[in-house]
Amino acid sequence: MAKARPIPGLSADDPYTRAATKIVGVRVGELVAHASGVLDVGDIERVHDMRVATRRLRAALEIFGPCFPQQDLKAALRRVKELADALGERRDRDVSIAALETIRASMAAPDRPGIDSLIVRLRAEQSAANEALARFLAEDKLATLCDQLSELVAGAIVPIDEVTELPRIHIAGEAA
């Protein structure tokens, strides 16, 4: 599992809103960085890493909820949750198939057909989950999500004396 990226320049004394923009910015970057190769069912860790990235991002959005315009926050959370759910559907099948293949290897030959039949069923479900996930990972969809998150961060409710010091995230280039 990918470790959480450190948050550069984060301090305990940071005003909450400034910390929010720093942390959410990094978490969005993590999400984008893990988007490549996710549809490859031959490497199930990629989907796992992206799923964990969505969880970290959702956690950050929930933790720092009071810092953002509430309507924009709700919309962003909904979009991230939809993506997370799609990743979860794929991940559940990946985990089950991997577990069954390990168990199968230790089973007696007469016991294997039953497990094979279940694996076949799960492979079909995995394929359907992958197709659904592909719709979320289309470049334009991902770019739209990033724009939405970028605007959310830019719209953070900041005290007047903080305005000039706010960091900004630049995601559009990273998504390509």
Binding site: L10, A12, D13, P15, Y16, T17, P66
Partner: peptide
């Protein structure tokens, strides 16, 4: 009692 105007530390402690 989460408050955007106080420090990360204080809000984090509450969470």
């Amino acid at each position: 009692r989460l408050d955007p105007d106080v420090s990360l530390e204080e809000n984090a402690a509450r969470i």
